[in-house]
Amino acid sequence: MRPAELPPRSGAGGGEDRDDATRSLQEEIVDLARALPGPLRRLTVRSGDRSVEVEWAADVVVAPAAAPAAAPASGALQAVTPAAATAPESPAAAPEVPEGTVPVRAPLVGTFYTAPSPGAEPFVRVGDEVEAGQTLGIVEAMKLMNPIVADSAGVVTEVRVGDAESVEYDQVLLLLRPPGGSR
């Protein structure tokens, strides 16, 4: 089913004005999806402060969009451009995992945090020894904090993502050298 074929949701109360607002929002979303370059992997819309998240298919390079000619009318849908909406890296440019290290990957799309709270010491630093089950960081997704834990013991050799950076599914967050591995 295409977005244009979706019937508007009817809300409790508000009557015809609510249906018109929903229909208007739906039309804006469909127009936005058609105007975006390349095939989309995901388009998420939130009604709360009206934000839009766009994720392109992995093999598409997205050029930065031109600035809009005029500001949208009051109450119009505002597109939020996340840092991740810039051109994705090609598979050939993706950093490889050095031999003798174990990658710790992001289990979901979100924001990576190196510490339990702003200003706190990071969970781990390069050179730290970690145990299986130890928290290495947090990925926040949809207001939920998801701990990133070590699957096995090792020494942190590299942290590839900075604090509060957006991460993609399966992205390498940090590297561990197993105990007894080469230095």
Results as ranks from 00 to 15, higher is better:
residue 122 P to Q: 06
residue 17 D to F: 02
residue 143 K to M: 03
residue 154 G to A: 04
residue 99 E to G: 10
residue 116 P to G: 09
residue 119 G to T: 13
residue 86 T to G: 15
residue 122 P to T: 07
residue 166 S to R: 10
residue 73 A to Q: 14
residue 183 R to C: 03
residue 59 D to T: 13
residue 137 G to V: 05
residue 1 M to R: 07
residue 16 E to S: 09
residue 108 L to H: 08
residue 153 A to K: 03
residue 133 G to L: 09
residue 149 V to Y: 00
residue 25 L to T: 14
residue 175 L to N: 04
residue 166 S to N: 06
residue 133 G to Y: 11
residue 15 G to F: 05
residue 152 S to I: 01
residue 9 R to M: 10
residue 1 M to G: 14
residue 125 R to Y: 01
residue 91 P to V: 07
residue 116 P to E: 09
residue 149 V to F: 00
residue 114 T to V: 06
residue 63 A to W: 08
residue 80 V to K: 05
residue 172 V to R: 02
residue 139 V to T: 08
residue 129 E to H: 12
residue 100 G to A: 06
residue 125 R to H: 10
residue 160 R to S: 11
residue 54 V to P: 00
residue 28 E to T: 05
residue 99 E to P: 03
residue 49 D to S: 14
residue 181 G to F: 02
residue 29 I to Y: 02
residue 17 D to M: 02
residue 15 G to S: 10
residue 169 Y to I: 04
residue 16 E to G: 01
residue 55 E to V: 15
residue 43 L to A: 08
residue 59 D to S: 14
residue 105 R to D: 03
residue 167 V to L: 11
residue 1 M to V: 13
residue 41 R to L: 15
residue 107 P to T: 12
residue 22 T to I: 11
residue 138 I to Q: 07
residue 117 S to L: 12
residue 134 Q to A: 13
residue 11 G to W: 12
residue 109 V to C: 00
residue 130 V to C: 02
residue 138 I to W: 00
residue 167 V to Q: 05
residue 33 A to V: 12
residue 79 A to H: 09
residue 1 M to S: 12
residue 179 P to S: 03
residue 152 S to L: 11
residue 80 V to W: 03
residue 135 T to H: 01
residue 146 N to C: 08
residue 29 I to T: 11
residue 163 D to Q: 09
residue 4 A to L: 07
residue 65 A to C: 06
residue 149 V to L: 04
residue 4 A to Q: 14
residue 108 L to Q: 13
residue 87 A to L: 07
residue 119 G to S: 13
residue 11 G to A: 14
residue 32 L to W: 09
residue 51 S to T: 13
residue 121 E to P: 00
residue 125 R to A: 15
residue 127 G to Y: 10
residue 180 G to N: 06
residue 137 G to C: 06
residue 109 V to S: 05
residue 82 P to Q: 08
residue 122 P to G: 09
residue 146 N to A: 10
residue 132 A to H: 09
residue 8 P to F: 12
residue 68 P to L: 04
residue 61 V to I: 08
residue 182 S to D: 15
residue 68 P to E: 05
residue 148 I to H: 05
residue 59 D to W: 14
residue 60 V to M: 07
residue 158 E to R: 11
residue 142 M to K: 04
residue 128 D to E: 08
residue 126 V to F: 07
residue 99 E to W: 02
residue 63 A to S: 13
